[in-house]
């Protein structure tokens, strides 16, 4: 009651329009596009090229969902969101799925009215320093000034790490990655901290990328994944299994190139995946060739990784944790059968 009175007392100014619950799949089908919340521009994850085409790991999840629902990966409407806007945009129904390098944490999962559907990139927070400092480990950073990009879990991790190790530091928080990078380049701070994937992306944007190094320490677990609104299980299943299908395709050896051939010549596992046998799509309310469409249009997880952040991209990030479970990583999708 007190809560309500307090809310009433201040008057509600940020009118969040909450559209009707459930039925996201029907809404999406009626609209003809999946509305997907992405970042305002992060190399390798969601970025727009000069022709206005979006690409990246997070964008591929949006495309996979569109391919599963419509059989067409281009039926996506991208909504660039800042870190501050993202949860409100999903809660208010402005986007159907939030795929925006968002860390899956307990508090976000339980208190924001959303559900994470899986992990599409296992990340961890790291540090980038100028080579000139001669620092080899984060433990040598006592008294350093640290630049952070605002609106992420990084501020919390940073404070925890320095406190746990009894180190002093000064933190400067910037709003966008460009400002953070500019401040680091000008020497305003000694260290730039962010998720490691972002550090690599920021590093190649420096005027002299060779003069900066990423320290070996990873100070946090950052499982990044897409999220949907809580309380719509049909849509939750579609999003969850679209991501799982990308990972499963890789472990089954199905790629965008061989998928069409495997429909006829594949193993029973592969045939089930491609929708030749079983009613796996129908159970979710979409067509049975959903997983085939995802693989044909978007590719499997490995293809998406290499194209966007791996060897086929300027970032050249190694698979590391993001390799399949039997390849030294921790990617393990639930079987489609």
């Amino acid at each position: 009651m007190l809560k309500k009175t307090a809310m009433l007392a201040i008057g509600l100014t940020a009118g969040v329009s909450l559209s009707a619950q459930a039925g996201t799949l029907e809404d999406v089908q009626k609209r003809g596009v999946v509305s997907c919340g992405v970042s305002t521009g992060l190399a390798g994850f969601s970025q727009k090229d000069e022709k206005g085409q979006w690409s990246g790991m997070d964008v591929d999840v949006c495309r996979a969902v569109a391919a599963a629902v419509f059989g067409d990966d281009t039926k996506v409407q991208y909504k660039p969101l800042t870190a501050k806007e993202r949860f409100t945009a999903l809660q208010s129904g402005e986007v159907d799925i939030l795929s925006r390098n968002t860390t899956w944490t307990q508090s976000r999962d339980t208190s924001l009215g959303l559900n994470f559907v899986g992990v599409n990139y296992y990340d961890g927070q790291g540090f980038m320093v100028s080579k000139k400092l001669g620092v080899k480990s984060a433990l040598e950073l006592d008294g350093a000034t640290v630049c952070i990009q605002a609106g992420t879990t990084t501020e919390l991790n940073l404070a925890d790490y320095f406190r746990a190790n009894g180190l002093k530091y000064t933190a400067i928080t910037f709003d966008t990655s460009d400002q953070t990078r500019a401040a680091f380049e000008s020497g305003r701070c000694d260290v730039l901290t962010s998720d490691q994937s972002q550090l690599y992306a920021l590093r190649i944007g420096l005027q002299k990328p060779d003069e900066a190094i990423v320290l070996p320490e990873v100070i946090s677990k950052e499982p990044l994944g897409p999220a949907v609104r809580q309380g719509d299980d049909v849509w939750f299943n579609i999003a969850k299994w679209s991501l799982a299908a990308m990972i499963e395709a890789e472990s089954l050896g199905i790629t965008s190139k061989n998928a069409a051939d495997l429909v006829a010549s594949g193993t029973p596992d592969q045939k089930r995946f491609l929708g030749v046998e079983g009613d796996f799509g129908k159970n979710m309310g979409i067509s049975n060739d959903w997983a085939k469409n995802i693989t044909l249009k978007v590719g499997n997880y490995g293809e998406s990784f290499e194209r966007n952040v791996g060897q086929g991209s300027p970032l050249k990030i190694a698979r590391g944790l993001n390799a399949q479970w039997n390849q030294g990583g921790i990617l393990y999708s639930w079987p489609i059968r």
Binding site: K3, K4, A6, M7, L8, G11, L12, G15, V16, L18, Q21, Q91, T110, S111, L112, G113, R229, Q230, G231
Partner: peptide, 17 residues
């Protein structure tokens, strides 16, 4: 507006207050 928002947020499992 306020009570509607609060009710909706509660239904969605969004923390308020």
């Amino acid at each position: 507006i306020v009570s509607n928002t609060l009710a909706n947020m509660e239904a969605r499992g969004i923390r308020t207050g």
